[in-house]
Computed example of a mutant assay.
Amino acid sequence: MEKLDAKQDDHDAELTVIIISYNTVGMTLKAIKTLYANTHDTQFDCVVFDNASTDGSAQAIAAAFPDIKLIASGQNLGFAYANNVVAAHCTTPYFLLLNPDTETQAGAVDALMSFARTQPRAGIWGGRTVFADGSLNIASCWAAPSLRSLFFRALGLSTLFPRSAFINPETYGRWPRDTPREVDIVVGCFLLIRRSLWETLNGFQPKYYMYGEDSDLCLRARAMGYRPMITPEAQIVHHVGASTPRNVEKAILVMKARMSLIQDHWPRWKVGLGLCLMWVWSALRFAVTRPFAASSHPRRRASAERWQTLWSKRRTWLSGYDQA
């Protein structure tokens, strides 16, 4: 892995944009291109950390953007640890974590920086995300998992009533992300944070190898009195999950991350209840989908196989990420 200088020379930059890439060469190039094309009022540096991609990402980025800082890792360090490595060597007042599968729209970064200056109490800021067709992607922010949200999720009611703020509180109900609002969690695909707060929090917890690291960061900031916010004035396109296809391995990591958030942020007396609800959630879906294991319908059969694997590996994800 290329080594960073002791401290990056940030010149007059106010912001460092950090992109962690992994096997998304075309999208990563587009993410960098749109970042520079649509940011006009903010002086920023961009650092791309390539997590041992096998699709020629590092070479293509170096050829297309020779002036940006590129670190080509010889091994996949995961999203959390890679961000920590880059951030440790940057001195700008703000960091912006930007996914490689995003496209920055006009003025998005400028608007986000302006919003941060007017809302310093937030500490962490995010914007509005849309899909490639322009439709709303609600996954720019979430509410923290709760006993209520896990209870309704375990029973399948959050799937039946996805837009109910009471039954599905983690999605904030019908709110279309068209107004500034305080949120529990700003998603790491487009997350702005003050460097001083990042350093106080010691960045991401490395145990969150993939998924959950942004939730943990925001919840730790909230525990200190900060109130993360998002603004609709800063909008990006997010091609969700391009570097992590939907498969059983991803699902296990997501479940592990959720269990770790319960362990790390719930009162001790609630943790056992959370574990039980996660167990019930997977048990019911395993039972419901099991009859489709031999189905001729590919999607039904795939769902059955997925939940069968998740159920068989429940001990793995119910323990959460390692505490080390």
Rank of each mutant, 00 (worst) to 15 (best):
P145C: 06
R306Y: 09
A13F: 02
F204V: 00
L217G: 12
E249G: 04
A242D: 13
D101V: 11
Q105Y: 08
A165T: 01
K270N: 09
L157H: 03
L219K: 13
S282W: 13
L253K: 11
E213C: 05
G212M: 01
H89M: 04
E249W: 06
M210L: 15
Y209R: 11
I230Y: 15
D101Q: 06
K270P: 04
G272Y: 08
L310Y: 03
C46N: 00
C141A: 12
P120G: 02
N83L: 10
A58N: 01
Q308H: 12
S243C: 04
L77H: 07
L201F: 13
S158G: 01
L29N: 03
E305N: 13
T171N: 09
T16M: 02
Y94G: 01
V186T: 04
N99V: 07
A106Q: 06
N247F: 06
L96D: 11
V86L: 05
H11P: 02
W269A: 04
A37M: 01
I71G: 09
T171G: 06
S260P: 05
Q235M: 08
Y22F: 13
F292M: 14
S243V: 07
Y209T: 09
F190M: 08
W142Y: 15
A223M: 08
V183Q: 06
G225C: 05
W279P: 02
Y208R: 03
R300H: 12
G225Y: 13
W311G: 07
L310C: 06
M27G: 03
A31R: 01
L4E: 01
V85P: 12
V280A: 14
G26M: 10
V183E: 11
P232Q: 02
L112S: 02
A62Q: 07
L136Y: 01
R195E: 03
R290K: 10
L284I: 09
L112M: 10
A58L: 01
T171L: 05
F166T: 11
W307V: 06
V187P: 00
T171C: 02
S21Y: 02
G212H: 10
C276E: 10
E2V: 07
Q119D: 05
F190N: 05
L201K: 04
P100A: 10
K313P: 05
I185A: 13
G272I: 08
S215P: 10
A72G: 04
R121K: 10
A144H: 11
T42E: 10
Q263N: 15
A257T: 12
T54Q: 02
A234K: 06
R117E: 14
R315H: 12
G134I: 08
D12V: 12
T54A: 10
T28L: 08
E213S: 01
D184Q: 11
V187F: 08
V254P: 00
W175H: 15
V240E: 13
A242S: 12
F286V: 11
G173A: 00
D133K: 11
A304H: 14
S303M: 15
G274L: 08
G107V: 03
G107M: 03
M27I: 00
C46Y: 00
D216Y: 14
G320I: 05
M113P: 00
P228E: 03
W125Y: 14
L29H: 01
F131W: 09
T92A: 07
G134Y: 14
C218V: 10
G225T: 11
K270V: 03
H239L: 11
K270L: 09
R314M: 13
L150E: 15
R222G: 11
D50S: 04
A72I: 01
W311D: 08
M259C: 07
